[in-house]
Design a protein around this nucleic acid. Structure first.
Lengths: 353, 353
DNA sequence: CTGAAAGCGCTTACAG
DNA sequence: CTGAAAGCGCTTACAG
């Protein structure tokens, strides 16, 4: 069934033979290790060129018995959102595929609602040897700081979920958040009247807000750039159910022109619950993420649109990007944008995260 | 930077030691090869269980120096559609990632417009040793026949682009075509009046039609199930520009209520060109695939919606599915549905195939 | 039916 | 600065 591979005539052995040195010396040159005279080095390098030598990564990993330690740093699953658990499934999927190549993935978690938890988790992460990091940089300052440390150690890092373009990441895997918000606005504009107003809800306990959520809001506002007055904002800083209810109720009462609500995160189900309880069926509701709870409200018709960004695939591709770079040594895409998927009651049963 | 792997104490050596046999015998048991007494076999199997032995695939592939031969069987890129070239990019992407594991991918092509070319290419394919096949089964009969032959040889196959659920494929990677057509209809129904009619165009030289295109049409018709009279069909069997033009022109002339056109394939750009030439701007046009030519018409506003199915990713995942099954021996998803992406003038610049 | 030995292509102490 | 040798965990003739 399986044909034998033609003999590999261009391995270290052949190089050593041609250069009249031992394979140990060839190995030193290949890996740029010291202890080789300039002359020998040049000679060997030339032969490597000629032969177009491609190292056998399989053999290399077997012989070295090295483990490649990757780490992920993301928010922990919480009662507030299980989004991050879905993302973890993608990590697992990638791990299965590359474990045999000696890759291990270590998991570190921080608290979505507590920015001080980020550096703590990061510190833990840095205590151990790590060859590459996949992280969701929800807090700009803290993430910038951490990535600086990684860079000093020459450890490549990949962003998922949201990007920090200023930092020199190996890659970004995730949605274009600004565009995502813009599209949400565009979609919404189809569905409401010209005089209707929109309530934007940005839910977090974090006073300064959370980078990706704000980015979506920016995109959303951009669409209504000429008529910003159509947008009403409530700062639902607290995330407990009754705070949310109170704030939304107050906003709706204050301005009866509000005919739609845009929630910048997966917590749209909270609003859905409130709208149902309050018997407000005429309001268009749009939010993020294909979570069971959100889908349930989609089915009931309380949520009209969910925008989704394939968290599982993000994590899978993020890990594979590190693998390609660190193990295979092949070039990786600097940016891998996820589609901005629009999910409705009609198509949700066919959607995969 | 990289930690040494803890020694592998549970390899064939350890099994051999415990069973008081040679590793050759252990190897025979592991691979179910003959030439081992029932007694020894049982003893070794028991130890394998106890140790929860996981073979080191890296070492295995290095030692055996076996090549895994995969083959793809898809339509050739043609003047009519470069869809298949994009798909090939996904094959390349997967190949890069797994070439080191000794996987080779052989490419076979048939003619989209000539069903007799399918068995010819299939025959070529079968002339060589093959361990797994990725194919787009556009012609039901011919593909069924071919897959039967593969099954006899115990060669697993994965479908992309369109599914043939009856056959025992290892997996299907692609869109749910029926659903795709249904959604197209749904989308269209938002955009046209209740009395407006729709022209469905199914383009191919193939008299019997092409399976995936027909499947999309079925889904489309399903949506309008209660009002089938709203759908007008033209059989644009020929694919040369002026035949298409003539047929569409005739259909539009015959029924002025036609306000929208649904093209079941990527050849929607042909219709766009005709509509522009004929100066018919009021007609909603929807078709398939994110090809440069289609995108150009999207930008010009002649095409209103494109439905896309990520051909590159289909091919990538299809190949990786075979790899996971044949090399890693891990379970694979029986169906991997691609999202049904809706592309408009507003979001096309952010789309990736 | 079973085992000893060589080998896959590379890496790694160790000796000089 | 350089090389001989052992080894990674498994596979494969070959001999008995």
């Amino acid at each position: 069934m399986k044909a034998k591979q033609p003999e590999q005539p261009n391995g270290v052995k052949e190089i050593a033979r041609r250069a009249k040195v031992s394979i140990a010396t060839v190995d030193r040159v290949i890996h740029n290790r010291p202890g080789v005279s300039a002359k020998t080095r040049t000679k060997i390098e030339k032969i490597i060129q000629e032969l177009n030598y491609q190292p056998n990564i399989i053999a290399s990993r077997l012989a070295s018995r090295k483990v490649l330690n990757l780490a992920i740093l993301i928010p922990a699953k919480s009662i507030e959102t299980e989004y991050w658990e879905i993302l973890l499934a993608g990590v697992l999927q990638a791990e299965e595929e590359i474990r045999q190549m000696g890759v291990r993935i270590h998991r570190y978690f921080y608290d979505f609602n507590d920015r001080s938890s980020f550096p703590k988790a990061a510190k833990q992460l840095l205590k151990n040897e790590v060859d590459g990091v996949l992280l969701a940089p929800l807090f700009i300052e803290e993430a910038t700081d951490f990535c600086g440390q990684l860079q000093e150690k020459n450890v490549p890092f990949v962003f998922i979920n949201s990007d920090l373009p200023g930092l020199d990441s190996l890659s970004y895997v995730g949605p274009e958040l600004f565009r995502s918000g813009y599209l949400a606005a565009h979609l919404m504009s189809y569905c409401i009247g010209l005089k209707d107003k929109i309530l934007v809800v940005n839910m977090t306990k974090q006073k300064e807000g959370i980078h990706p959520l704000l980015r979506k809001e920016e995109g959303f506002r951009e669409y209504f750039g000429e008529k910003p007055s159509r947008i009403v904002k409530t700062d639902a800083l607290e995330t407990s159910d009754d705070t949310v209810e109170r704030k939304v109720a107050a906003a709706l009462a204050a301005d009866p022109a509000i005919k739609a609500i845009f929630v910048t995160s997966s917590r749209v189900h909270n609003i859905a619950r409130y709208l149902e309880t309050a018997g407000k069926n005429g309001i268009l509701l749009m939010g993020y993420d294909f979570l069971p709870e959100n889908v349930a409200w989609l089915q009931k018709g309380m949520i009209d649109f969910l925008i989704c960004q394939k968290p599982q695939e993000q994590a899978y591709r993020g890990i594979m990007t590190l693998y390609q770079h660190l193990v295979l040594g092949i070039a990786v895409e600097k940016e891998h944008f996820m589609p901005i998927d629009i999910i409705t009651r009609e198509n949700h049963m066919y959607y995969k995260n």
